[in-house]
Design a protein around this nucleic acid. Structure first.
Length: 160
DNA sequence: GCCAACGTTGGC
DNA sequence: GCCAACGTTGGC
């Protein structure tokens, strides 16, 4: 494992933005806008370029970890918070003190076999994953190095 | 600072 | 579409 690299999981509803969308985006890169939860934002603020990201499809059939991305730009203000016409507009966030940040991530790969939530739950070594905690709704969450290694092994991926 | 009301998330 | 779990808001 690379020195100092950290690992994350980010959720997206595939009907809104899927890993295929990321793979087909310009430069296979997207800004992760729309996060409006302080804990998730705070995690994004600690991300570094090169950190690895599990891409999770929520509200999907089945919900599953479907691939991997990497952080290519650290946190910066999410423009959609200032846009009155935008769904994620936040009238209480002034330009002088932006409340919400985003990062950029780039596609790395889609797993040949995606990992459904059910399957992850059956893996004892993943029992403490934030994703699997009862009631957990965090859309941006940390993954330990050990969990990362287990997930990639389940996905049949060598290296990271 | 408490907490009821409300909105959202996301599995099922 | 249902609803449990959770986060935020705002009256007091």
């Amino acid at each position: 494992m690379a020195q100092g690299r950290r690992y994350w999981l980010m959720k997206s509803e595939p009907r809104v933005f899927s890993i295929e969308d990321l793979a087909q985006a310009p430069r296979q890169t997207t800004c992760w806008d729309g996060v409006r939860n302080y804990q998730a934002r705070n995690f994004m603020r600690t991300m570094a370029v090169g950190d690895r990201v599990l891409f999770y499809h929520s509200n999907a059939e089945p919900p599953a970890v479907v691939g991997m991305a990497e952080v290519v730009r650290t946190a910066y203000p999410d423009e959609t918070q200032f846009d009155k016409t935008h769904h994620h507009y936040d009238p209480s966030s002034p330009r002088s003190a932006p409340r919400w940040d985003m990062v950029d991530i780039r596609y790395r790969q889609t797993f040949k076999a995606s990992l459904p939530l059910d399957q992850l739950r059956q893996e004892p070594r993943l029992k403490d994953m934030v994703l699997l905690r009862k009631g957990s709704r965090l859309s941006v969450q940390p993954v330990t190095e050990e969990e990362w290694a287990v997930v990639l092994k389940l996905a049949g991926v060598k290296g990271s």
